[in-house]
Amino acid sequence: MALGTFLALTVAYAQDAAKPQRIVSLDLCTDQILIGLVERRRIAAVTHLAADSAVSATPERAKGLPITHGVAEDVLRYDPDLVLVGPFGVSATVDLLKRLNKNVVLVPQAPDLDGVRASMRAVAAAVGEKDKGEAVIADFDRRLAAVPKPARAGTVSALIYQVGGTVSGPGSLADATLRAAGFHNMAMDYRLTRGGQAPLESLVARPPDLLVLSSGIGEYRTALADNLRHPALQALRRSRVSLELPWQLWLCGTPEVAGAVEVLAAARVAIEARSR
């Protein structure tokens, strides 16, 4: 029995040898996909954000992993055989690592749900876990398919309203999440075709059916969060349906996006039932 386990482990290890074994991730989004795909011992370092519950969807899974601060010298300490970077990586650092012949893989930011699948496939291919990647994507698609569809798409509106009055417009993952949940994104009605800052007055004059706020944002000490405490917004929240959603769910193109779609779709079903 013990021998069998030993043999199985040895075989598994031999198969693993061809796969990257000391992976460093320099982007919050690749951190999260990586943690979901490979064994912890193959992760050399992730960013400090991966364990930050304010931005990471899976902070508890990143606890205890070594942390890199993303500058080339710090990355080299881990002698990585794979470096995962995102679009917000410092390009000077990435160039330097490439010049040093490090295996650097850039994973683009996911602008929509297809982008989420592409990100997961890119990471899975880089770490040599294609099958596991496809399994994760299949599960993601299953969850999305199970979400109740609206009778007529885009009749119920929603707005994602954040710190400083920032709203997510078309071309963002947040917008794709809203649409996947069967909503019309109200940002378009405020002429914010690419997102931006929505004046509170627009919100009050033409409120969305559902106001989506980010939970946990109030913890930040910032003057920009004043808009979330504004009496006009508080009044709006008393008179309209609003929802606090952890923004970690759609900040990155990870399988967690499906969770955001599920919560939003449930809110839409409740609004439809009320107006019927």
């Binding site: 009055g165 000490r221 910032t222 004043d226 808009n227």
Partner: peptide
């Protein structure tokens, strides 16, 4: 040092002031 994700946007607020969405509280 505050490490909030909005630090750079907030910098703009302080250097290029704004009257937008201020409330009676302020």
């Amino acid at each position: 040092l505050s490490q909030n994700p909005f630090a750079s946007v907030e910098m703009v607020f302080w250097l290029m002031g704004s009257l937008a969405d201020r409330s009676l509280t302020q």
